[in-house]
Write a protein that binds this DNA or RNA. Structure first.
Lengths: 203, 203
DNA sequence: ACCTGAACACCGTTCAAGT
DNA sequence: ACCTGAACACCGTTCAAGT
């Protein structure tokens, strides 16, 4: 058997990614197995290893697509500027995480082995998302030195992410915070107010 | 075979938890298996199911101990009060996460099945940690209504947690943030400044 | 009552063998 | 060159059977 050549390697890669994303979306990251993917695309397990190094490599490619998806989602929040723009961004990030919970979770749930570094092409995807936030910060205070702005943008975004994480895994709910949207807005608003009021920015 | 009665159920439970914590600390959460635990304590796999419902139940008990551990670690930051006290808390949380990375991660990495709710005794452990942060907030502004303070404390803490998550999984590093301690302090400081300056607190 | 050990239904990954 | 299918070394969980 073998040598079917019904699909090119690129086509198979695309089929695997689509099938994998569907499984993740519908059943969560822990339900993602090579056997399930193989079954859905009509190939055997071995064929998946023709086009991906291993499961970690496959997940990384799924996550890269999700990061693109998130960036697109955030970009649609183009109407607002300044502090309100950042609040809108934060709300958009939360709404993405809610609507695509399992895909969003996979980005942070899957730890690649300690020794393997994050590939550069993947780092660029992360950078793209953070870059959007930073652009909003740039509109906020044009006098601020770039280094300080970058740091502030990344810090706030990590914070917004944290609120999303703890609310969507039930921790914040267990502790009496029911309206998460209020929380992300609260965090963004007060942080920005504090940041703007700090004059020449230090540490 | 069977009926050894060398150890009471409670003793076995304690042995399992100790062994499990060591495996997690040394090899990470993904290396935690019932077979490995059983081997280390000198019992067979089946015996673990005498004292724990399943893996999820066991992990929950490990995490409960970690939450206690975190609370103790935070409580040792008793010297500072006010805004500096909260910054010290944030630094202490980060330092705990760094020193006990694998144990800390397990709390958020292990998702219990969608339908099973968080047990009340476990919610209380989470509440205890958040409660410490809230107590620091109470010193900050005694006039603030309790609801607003609670919300602010939980929001900021989720934010601090987010900075820790993204830095310790390499995301922030990939994006140019090298001094995480600066980030947690920046988040806490600006958030508090913005919050204090907001007068009668609204959403 | 306590504990074993084998079984069951899964995993990811590899690779000789077929076309 | 492309793909299979069986094998290998693992998983969590269950449960009849032994003491």
């Amino acid at each position: 058997m073998a040598r079917r050549s019904e699909h090119s390697q690129e086509e198979i890669k695309a089929m695997i990614l689509s099938a994998a994303e569907l499984i993740v979306a519908e059943q969560g990251g822990s339900a993602l197995t090579v056997r399930k993917i193989a079954g859905q695309i009509g190939y055997t397990v071995g064929s998946i290893y023709m086009v991906f190094d291993n499961m970690a490599d496959l997940v990384l490619h799924i996550n890269a697509r999700t990061l693109d998806h998130i960036a697109t989602h955030l970009e649609q929040t183009r109407d607002c500027t300044g502090a309100l723009g950042i609040e809108a961004f934060a709300k958009a990030y939360l709404s993405y995480a809610r609507q695509h919970l399992n895909r969003w979770r996979l980005i942070f749930d899957y730890h690649l082995p300690e020794d393997t570094p994050i590939p550069l092409w993947y780092q660029a995807k992360i950078e793209a998302v953070f870059g959007l936030v930073e652009a909003q910060f740039a509109q906020l205070d044009r006098n601020c030195p770039e280094a300080g702005r970058k740091h502030a943008a990344r810090t706030l975004w990590a914070g917004v992410h944290g609120v999303c994480v703890l609310s969507l895994n039930g921790t914040l709910g267990a502790v009496g915070v029911n309206d998460v949207e209020d929380s992300v807005v609260l965090l963004a608003r007060h942080f920005i107010r504090g940041w703007m009021g700090s004059g020449p920015v230090q540490a």
